[in-house]
Every structure is written in structure tokens, then in C-alpha cells.
């Protein structure tokens, strides 16, 4: 299968994933008990006003009509308006996406920069002090919820180091320094569990590669260990890590939601939790949808990286 065919197949698959997400989200959200019109106007609103509002929001139409209307609007890029504020969903999301993306990105960078080298060192120095130390730290990483790491960081670092704020977010256009400082602790909280997972994968993948015949052959040929390691080993060891790195992005995503709450940052996580509490249907739908979309997209990107690392891969051939 050629690259183009493979990408096409992946895109079609992604469309199905998104359609599934859209459908599940729509029907799930519509079965939340509670009438949004009543929630907006309050318990003692008069029936006529309630009725008018329901008609205006399209809540009186049969469910499947609402579903197809919504689908059609989605296709034209219209994610609806928040029932509460009347603002377009997409706009509200774009407003709060900055902090969430910043935290997630920096968290991933921290995780990768730490996990990949330690994973390699750990595998090369197996059963030595370096290995024990880094596997133990990684173990702690995968055993702590991100939001708790955040709380501990606030208590330990935030309270003692004045330069690092523990609350709120500074946009990047107010200066790179303040921006970095404002997302540093949340990013560590999000990145640590992800780094733990990556490090363990890197280590076991590298261990497997080190035992392969071609590695022994290379060493027997007289190539020095380090050269063998990087030229032959690393490339092959990275393959499974990269594939799974995409899937475990969900860990980062999940972490960000709760970490935003801890650090009082108005990001997508806070928007989502807030919209659930207010039964703001379009906002919940839009948020879950756009986040899933980004997630699916990230996985396609990871797939492309995968083929770049190993040009010999047969697209879609693996079972």
C-alpha cells in the first residue's frame, strides 16, 4: 500500500471516529436531566417565556431533527452558541485554548526531554544504580494523579519561590518569561505521569532492541558500543514508543483538565466542567468535539512521524 493510499485510509477512519464521537456526545448530552430553558431563566420563570426560549433554542424539535440540524451546522464550521452567554462555542473555546495548549505542549516537551534519555541510559546500564534510580522515579510518575502533583508543587515550590506564581495564567504576548513561569508548575504536573509512561516504554523497547541479532552483529564487527547504540538501536527502539506516545496523549489531556482547576487557570478544562454544571449543551458538545478532533489529528501526526522514523514500514500492513 502506498503512502497516499494509507493516508487516505487513515483519514476515512478518522472521519468515522469523529462521527462516532459526534453522535455519542449529542445523544449523551441530550439525556442529561434538567431543562436548559428553565436553568437559564430560573425556577420561577413564567411559562410563556420558557416556551418562547425553548422554541428559540430549537429544544422543541424532535431529537433527530435537532441532531441533523446540528450535524449540518457542524459541517459549515458552526459549533452553535453557548446557551448561557450567547457567544459562539468556537470563539469561547479559542479564547481559553491558549493556556490549555501551552500547558499540554510544555508538559509533553518536559516529558520527552527527560524520558527518552533516561530510558536509554536505564536500558544500557541495566541493573545498575542509574537504572534503579530512573525506574523508581518513573514508577512514582505513573502512580500519582497529575492534579495532586500540582498541589504538592504549589506547597513545595510555589510557596517558597516567589518568582513562580501558583495561580492564574499570563498570556505569551505579555512576555515569554512571565508566560513560561505561569505554566511551569502545571506543565510539570501534567508532564510527570506522561514522562513516567514514556520512560518505561523507551526502556523496555531499547532492551528488546539491544538483544536483537543485528545489534550483536554490529558489536561483533568491531563498531564501538555508543555508535552501535545510536545508529542501529535508537531508531528501532523509538518506533513503538512513538506509536504509543500518541495514544497516551490522552493522559496529558486528562491531566490538564484537573490541573487547570488546581492552578485556577481558565482553560478548556475549566470551561468543560463549568459548562457541565450549567447544563450548557452546545458548549459541552463543542468542547468534547473539538478536543477529540485535536486528539484524532494528533494521532495522525504521530502516525506520520512513525513512517518518517522507519521508512521501511509497510503502511497499514501490520497486524
Amino acid at each position: 500500500m502506498g503512502l497516499r493510499q494509507y493516508l487516505l485510509k487513515r483519514l476515512v477512519h478518522s472521519v468515522f471516529v469523529m462521527l462516532f464521537v459526534v453522535t455519542v456526545v449529542f445523544f449523551a448530552v441530550r439525556s442529561i436531566p434538567g431543562d436548559p430553558a428553565r436553568l437559564m431563566l430560573g425556577g420561577d420563570a413564567d411559562p410563556e417565556a420558557l416556551e418562547a426560549l425553548r422554541a428559540e433554542l430549537g429544544l422543541n424539535e424532535p431529537l433527530y431533527v435537532q441532531y441533523f440540524q446540528w450535524l449540518r451546522r457542524l459541517l459549515t464550521g458552526d459549533f452553535g452558541e453557548s446557551i448561557r452567554t450567547g457567544e459562539p462555542v468556537l470563539g469561547s473555546l479559542v479564547q481559553v485554548a491558549g493556556p490549555t495548549l501551552s500547558i499540554a505542549m510544555l508538559g509533553m516537551v518536559i516529558a520527552l526531554v527527560i524520558a527518552i534519555p533516561t530510558g536509554i541510559v536505564s536500558s544500557v546500564k541495566r541493573y545498575e544504580i542509574e537504572d534503579y534510580l530512573s525506574t523508581t522515579i518513573a514508577f512514582f510518575g505513573i502512580s500519582m494523579p497529575a492534579f495532586w502533583i500540582g498541589i504538592v508543587l504549589i506547597l513545595v515550590v510555589g510557596v517558597n519561590v516567589d518568582a513562580i506564581p501558583t495561580f492564574g495564567y499570563t498570556p505569551i504576548n505579555e512576555g515569554v518569561g512571565p508566560w513560561l513561569r505561569s505554566i511551569l508548575l502545571p506543565a510539570i504536573a501534567v508532564g510527570f505521569p506522561y514522562g513516567g509512561i514514556l520512560m518505561r516504554m523507551m526502556r523496555s523497547s531499547m532492551l528488546e532492541v539491544l538483544n536483537e541479532d543485528y545489534m550483536r552483529t554490529a558489536r561483533a564487527k568491531g563498531l564501538t558500543s555508543n555508535l552501535v547504540l545510536f545508529k542501529h538501536g535508537l531508531q528501532n527502539a523509538l518506533i513503538p514508543v512513538v506509536t504509543l506516545a500518541g495514544i497516551f496523549l490522552a493522559v496529558v489531556l486528562g491531566g490538564v483538565v484537573a490541573v487547570e482547576i488546581v492552578f485556577g487557570i481558565r482553560g478548556i478544562g475549566r470551561l468543560l466542567i463549568g459548562s457541565i454544571n450549567r447544563r450548557d449543551f452546545p458548549l459541552i458538545q463543542g468542547t468534547v468535539l473539538i478536543v477529540s478532533f485535536v486528539f484524532v489529528l494528533a494521532n495522525i501526526v504521530v502516525d506520520l512521524l512513525y513512517t518518517m522514523i522507519n521508512p521501511r514500514i509497510k503502511y497499514g500492513g501490520g497486524e
Binding site: 471516529v17 490522552a250 486528562g254 483538565v257 459541552i284
Partner: peptide, 24 residues
């Protein structure tokens, strides 16, 4: 397995948050 594949590309916490929000 195609059905299972679809589930694979789904951020889990969102499912969980949504389901609990919906069903109480």
C-alpha cells in the same frame, strides 16, 4: 475490531466526565 479501533482514538477522561455528567 473496527468498532474497537474507534474507541481507541477517544480521550478517556472526556468519556468518563461526560457519562457521569449525563447519568449522574
Amino acid at each position: 475490531m473496527r468498532g474497537v479501533d474507534v474507541m481507541w482514538a477517544f480521550p478517556w477522561l472526556l468519556i468518563a466526565i461526560m457519562l457521569v455528567a449525563v447519568f449522574g
